[in-house]
């Protein structure tokens, strides 16, 4: 983000806010991922332990979600840059 309009003290306070937010967001990403992969992969409640099939599914689900959100992040930045360029051209 562009903090150029902030004073040095404000920029430093903002950095702390961003760091704390990233921590919180990471936590939510994590638990959201657990919820998502549990929901998609686990459906057999005849035992307490994960089956091999469920374990493999969870692994793939985790990897795929991370790759997905990485790709979305890259496209997001491109689209955002495009949008800003359009706004400044006006």
């Amino acid at each position: 983000m562009d903090f150029s309009q902030l004073s040095p003290a404000e920029a430093s306070a903002m950095e702390q806010i961003v760091a704390r937010k990233q921590m919180r967001d990471f936590t939510k990403l994590y638990s959201g991922l657990v919820e998502r992969c549990f929901g998609s992969c686990v459906d057999d409640f005849t035992s307490r332990a994960l089956t091999t099939r469920e374990e493999e599914c969870v692994d793939k689900c985790t990897m795929k979600f991370l790759k997905h959100s990485e790709r979305v992040g890259a496209r997001f930045q491109e689209e955002n840059a495009k949008m800003m360029a359009q706004q400044q051209a006006k």
């Binding site: 992969c41 793939k60 795929k64 979600f65 790759k67 997905h68």
Partner: peptide, 23 residues
């Protein structure tokens, strides 16, 4: 917005059969 984007496009594009770890 970003979080909603991630989950919206996951719902639209990603198969939940999870046959492979890559897109």
């Amino acid at each position: 917005v970003f979080n909603r984007l991630v989950s919206s496009c996951h719902a639209k594009c990603i198969s939940t059969r999870y046959l492979e770890p890559d897109l």
